[in-house]
Amino acid sequence: MAHMDFHSLTSLDETLEKLAAYGSDATLVAGGTSARYLIMSGQVEAKAVLHIERLAEFAGITLNGGARLGALTNMRDIAEDTAIIARFASLATAAGKCGGWQTQSIATIGGNVCGASPSADLIAPLLVQDAEIELHSQARGSRTVALTDFLVAAYKTDRAADEMATAFHLPAQPGESADTYIKIQRRSAMERPIIGVALRLALDESGENIREVRIAVCGAGPMPFRASEAETLLAGQAPTDEAVRAASDAIIKRSTFRDDARASASYRAAVLPRAFAHALSLCRATIAGA
């Protein structure tokens, strides 16, 4: 293997300086659960590895109206955080289903999202919170981007080569609302999702009609996406079987399914409407019980 620089960094300034110097020759590594494999297998060519796991100021969860999660917050900490479980249940569930505890102890939210893998567990739950990502660079300071705009394509994001993701901002969520994440997988653990459905449902004062619903799906296209057509169909409606079916059809229409080692395209198409309907009923039950 060719020579590779390795820098273990302890401050943002130091990191941004190295990023500015190396540009696209640098690969940021936090827990390294994914990045090390990509480098070792030759899928990512790195002339320099910038180890950022020690930037402790970017690990941790702060609550405001919503929540701010440092980009270096690990999966286990997200899965076990009582406030995240209470307010952003889909995110806690997804983090707790991402590999085993050995992976979750060091894998970070920043790595999961910035890797932009089609099966990244946290993306769909973040999309239904209308989450934003904050990035820093030496040249241009900080900027905040909606996650929908940040994710460009599979393995491709809007992050510039000299930028580091520092935080995720989850805005305050509507009242009378709940969220959930359904992950369809072959085993109950240690799997990538065959289909994943994240849902945020808000009901109106009557508790009968849908005020707003946000739907994000993974495993049904090259990248997780917000099913905005289905969202529009359901807004202001009562969740009758007919309305749910119409929304389901709109999600399917938007999807492209494929066969892979985990499942067939036809299985994915068959299971997605059921996962969606289940997610809706779980959210309704949570709101009713709250």
Partner: peptide
């Protein structure tokens, strides 16, 4: 952690 995927230098 899984030591098999953890970078020793870290």
């Amino acid at each position: 952690i899984n030591a098999c995927i953890f970078i020793a230098r870290a």
